[in-house]
Write a protein that binds this DNA or RNA. Structure first.
Lengths: 203, 203
DNA sequence: CCTCTCTTTGACCAGTTGGTCAAATCACGA
DNA sequence: TCGTGATTTGACCAACTGGTCAAAGAGAGG
C-alpha cells in the first residue's frame, strides 16, 4: 500500500519535475546533469535521489506526465461538432500549446527523435488508440460530405508537424524571420491551410 | 598554404564523417562517444583525433556539409517554372530526402532543437538569405494570380515541417500506423494538401 | 636500402558524472 | 517536551569520457 505524500514530498517532487523540464528540454537527457537539475530545483544532488531513484526516473516521470497533456487537445476533438471548426480548433489549440509550452514540446520531440526508447510502448498503445479513434470520426465526416476527401492519419500528422514546428524549430524560424514573433502569422497561415484543405468543393 | 589531401586522409576523413553521421544521428552530440564513432569508423580513438581536432570538430564539420545538401532542394525552386508544379516538386524532393536521408534530417533536427549553437550563424545568414529570396518569388507568383494568396515564409515552414516529420518522428508515425510504410500515402497527402492550398479560386 | 614524413596506437590522465551512505537534522503527533 | 520517522547533506567512489603523448609502424621517393 502506498502511503499518502507529505506536503514536503509534494513540493519537492514538483520542484524537481519543474527543474527537470527546464533542464532536459534545453540539453536533452544525456546533455543534462543531476547537478544542473538539483541547482534548478534548489536541492542538493543526494536530495534529488531521495525523491527519484535515478536521473532516468525523473526523465521518464516527466515524459509520462507530459504525454497526457499532449494528447488532451486531440481528445477534445468533438465528433458532434462542426467538422471544419473542430479541426481548425484543434490546430489552434496545438499552436497555442507550442507557444505557451515550448519546453514540453521540445522535450517530447527530443525523445521521439532519439527513437522514443522511454515511451515506445505508450506510443503504440495510448497514442495509437486515440488517433485511430479520431481517424474514424474524420472518415465519417468525409463520408457525410462535410469535409473534402482526406487521409485522416496524415491530416493529423500534418497538424502535429506544422504546429509543433514553431516550438521545436523556434530558433530556425526566428533566424529566418529575423526575430519577428511568428505566432500571429502562423495562426492565420495554418487556419487558411487547413481550411482550404478541408473545405469540400462546391457540388 | 594547405597541402593537398593524401588518399589515406580522404578515405579516413570520409569514414569518420560517415561514422559520425551514423552515431550522432542516433544519440545526439552529448549522447555519442568518441569510442562509438571510432568503432563505427574502424579506427582507434587517437586516430580519430589525428584527423579531427575534437569531437565537436567532427560534429561541426558534419553539420556544415549537411547544411548545403539541405538547402539544395529549395535552391532548385525555379522562378521561371510553373508555380504550383514548382512548389509541389519542392515538396516531393523534400519528402524523398526524408525517406532516403533520415539520419541527416535527424541530426539537423537535433541541432536545431537544442538551440542550434553550432550553426546559428549559418541560419541567420545563408538560410535566411535563401528563404527571403524565394519568398520574393512566391509573392510574385501570388501577385500574378498564379497561386492563391499565401504567406510565403509560413508556406515554406509548413513544407519543411510536414516533410521532415516523416524522418524526424518516424518512430511515432510508425507506432500510430502500426508499422505500415508511410511514405507513399504521405506523398499523396502532401501533394493534395499543398495543391489545395495554392490553387487559386476560380475567378 | 635508407630516410623523411605521414599514420597509427597503447598507455595514460584529469575532469565529469551518476549514484551511495552514514550521519546529522528536522517535523510533527503523542 | 520527546521520540520517531522523514528529510537533508558532506564526503566519497567507480565508471566513463575527451583528449594527450611518446613511440612504433607504414609508405614513397631517392
Amino acid at each position: 500500500m502506498n502511503k499518502p505524500e507529505t506536503r514536503i514530498q509534494q513540493r519537492n517532487r514538483a520542484a524537481i519535475m519543474s527543474a527537470g523540464l527546464e533542464v532536459f528540454s534545453q540539453f536533452g537527457l544525456r546533455g543534462s546533469t543531476l547537478d544542473q537539475i538539483a541547482e534548478a530545483a534548489g536541492l542538493s544532488k543526494p536530495n534529488l535521489l531521495y525523491y527519484f531513484r535515478s536521473k532516468d526516473a525523473i526523465y521518464t516521470a516527466l515524459l509520462e506526465k507530459l504525454l497526457e497533456t499532449w494528447l488532451d487537445p486531440l481528445l477534445k476533438l468533438d465528433p458532434q461538432g462542426d467538422p471544419i471548426q473542430e479541426v481548425l480548433g484543434y490546430v489552434r489549440r496545438k499552436l497555442t500549446m507550442s507557444k505557451e509550452y515550448p519546453r514540453e514540446s521540445r522535450l517530447f520531440a527530443n525523445e521521439i527523435l532519439l527513437g522514443a526508447p522511454h515511451i515506445a510502448e505508450h506510443l503504440s498503445k495510448d497514442l495509437r488508440a486515440l488517433v485511430t479513434e479520431k481517424a474514424v470520426v474524420i472518415r465519417e465526416w468525409e463520408a457525410a460530405g462535410k469535409i473534402a476527401p482526406v487521409d485522416p492519419y496524415h491530416l493529423i500528422f500534418s497538424i502535429w508537424s506544422t504546429t509543433q514546428h514553431y516550438a521545436d524549430f523556434d530558433v530556425q524560424v526566428r533566424a529566418v524571420l529575423g526575430g519577428i514573433d511568428p505566432f500571429d502569422d502562423a495562426m492565420k497561415y495554418l487556419d487558411t491551410l487547413f481550411r482550404r484543405m478541408l473545405t469540400p468543393p462546391k457540388a
